[in-house]
Design a protein around this nucleic acid. Structure first.
Lengths: 340, 340
DNA sequence: CTGTTAGCGCGTTCAA
DNA sequence: TTGAACGCGCTAACAG
């Protein structure tokens, strides 16, 4: 309620002095500092950050756009983002796109109205196709960093932090091939776009490399959810020639796949091997424990936020992606195919 | 960049008219509206919401304080919160307390500086003990609603939305007892506080009701994480007299428990029954599928946000908790104890 | 229905 | 080292 003016009056100084006390106390006399300190306490003053943000022209807030809260992998990344954000004094505003069902216009406004000093696109891209073209001048939006997402055309110019999804997918596929699998299926989130597209591409590359078939029966498309993992797996199992291994675009799908395979009366990994992506915390305690590609989530989050801070502070950053290392974690959901 | 002033000049009207166009267009002539629309397009105008928020004295932002992003159950609740928030024009700022490791002072500032129009404490409470007492006058913070958390002393005066945790826990415990279990263990997140405390209390009540033992060996304390579910379960299994059933304070702990029991060479539910809380999406695909208490997460989120809106709009709301229904979902992780 | 005027609370000149 | 004065962009109050 009380403002600098009230504090100034109480302390018998000018508002400018109070302002300086708040921002650059080292410029004040010890004596004035004491007076102002007392006055602040006496009046119960607390900053109106609305006014400060307005005056400074920045919000000290960064916006994270993500497909869904409650996804374990993004939880790890957020932890890293938050660590750095809090260190640098930024608050975090989250926009949950509910797996991209949120209309783009809803967001467009906020990005062009000083509400955010920076934006992180966490596993997201599409919301911006519209928003960016909607703006008259492209200079107007705050800095944007892409995290955990591969370059699709609309975001290719932004700096990004991620693993090498194609290489990771090749490693995963090769692991299955080296175990002796011939019929390897791939189930994916939205094919041919972003992360899933890269992972699919890696899968195809590795399969072709070994002259293995990648006919359309083996490749299917869904969302990165348990539900779709289950649905696509059921379809796979009902085919004439079942795959002996399934590579899933993330762990949630893989966990759904394992459930359906067992439910179908088959065994993992004896009848069908399953491999996922992300190494979420549920992967290790799955039955059988899930073989997967681990990503350093927190590290990705931290690097993303550091990148963003750099851009906000004015550094020019080229848009070459920052690649962090992935790691194939071999557990028990993969094994050599059963010889019939 | 361009402001209402520029638009006003371009359109040949006053800034007030531009402002009205933005906020109450129905008060304007069709003709003026057209002129202003054109001018806005011509100048590439976009609102400075920092200025608007400042002028209006509100941020149109609500803050959600939660223990961790990436927890499935809170994800559901957030979905409900977001639905209503977006409908009402609020942005959401999230503070992740990393399971309460975040120092309270870090947050205190923002709650007393107009940065938030309202606050939701989602499964959280403690951060405020300090923050509230720290403020000179208790009137100064924005409205607060508690979601998914039982009244601990420091937050008992705030309105809240949740299930009846004690009744739910009684239902879960009775389910085990009716199956014939005598030695039922309870593993918990931070005992004797909030949700876990209520759940423990329900457990004790049900056990006592049936004259069953609840000695200290059977009750253990941890965080609501997979890790602690595993750790506490291992301890339980190594006791002389093993429990035949374990009631866990949430599903993550329960999933960890199941893993450890199987890992120990025992079977679920034949040797040990396990029951959880929340019905997160991983519960259904667990092996065996997890018996649990389901909470209507989205509904809780929606009701919480509606409550908050009401308070923000000035309604007096009493602090009687809004109780939403829970439901015992019986799957396959519970069964009668094996007769030896 | 529209224009004029004033000021939200702060940070930043410029002088003293 | 401190104070006086101004203005950020917007909206509210009051006239017209």
């Amino acid at each position: 309620m009380s403002s600098v003016k009230a504090v100034a009056k109480e302390a018998g100084v000018s508002t400018a002095t109070v302002s300086r006390f708040l921002n650059t106390p080292e410029l004040l006399t010890e004596k004035t500092r004491i007076k102002v300190t007392a006055a602040i306490k006496a009046t119960g003053y607390s900053m109106n950050s609305l006014a400060r943000n307005f005056r400074r022209g920045k919000s000290n807030t960064i916006v994270v756009v993500m497909p869904s809260i409650g996804v374990p992998h993004f939880g790890s990344v957020m932890k890293g983002i938050e660590t750095v954000a809090s260190e640098k004094g930024f608050s975090i505003m989250i926009i949950d796109t509910q797996f991209n069902t949120l209309p783009a216009d809803k967001m467009a406004g906020m990005f062009f109205s000083n509400q955010a000093d920076g934006i992180i696109l966490l596993g997201s891209s599409s919301p911006f196709k519209h928003a960016l073209s909607h703006a008259s001048s492209p200079e107007k939006h705050p800095p944007i960093i892409v995290s955990c997402e591969n370059a699709t055309p609309e975001i290719i110019d932004f700096p990004s932090v991620r693993i090498d999804n194609r290489a990771a997918s090749i490693a995963a596929t090769n692991h299955l091939i080296s175990l002796g699998h011939i019929r390897v299926a791939f189930i994916s989130g939205s094919l041919s776009t972003g992360v899933s597209g890269e992972r699919e591409s890696g899968y195809r590359l590795a399969m072709n490399e070994h002259n293995l078939d990648t006919c359309e029966d083996l490749i299917s498309d869904g969302n990165l959810t348990i539900e779709d993992g289950r649905r696509l797996t059921r379809r796979l199992l009902n085919q004439n020639q079942r795959p002996t291994a399934i590579l899933c675009a993330n762990d949630e799908m893989a966990l759904g796949a394992i459930y359906e395979i067992k439910n179908y009366g088959l065994k993992v990994p004896e009848d069908v091997s399953v491999i996922g992506f992300d190494d979420i915390r549920y992967a290790e305690i799955s039955d059988p424990p899930l073989t997967t590609i681990a990503q350093p989530g927190e590290e990705i989050g931290e690097k993303t936020m550091y990148q963003l801070c750099n851009v906000i502070e004015g550094s020019k950053i080229d848009s070459t992606p920052v690649i962090v290392p992935h790691q194939l974690i071999i557990r028990s959901s993969t094994a050599a195919p059963q010889t019939k």
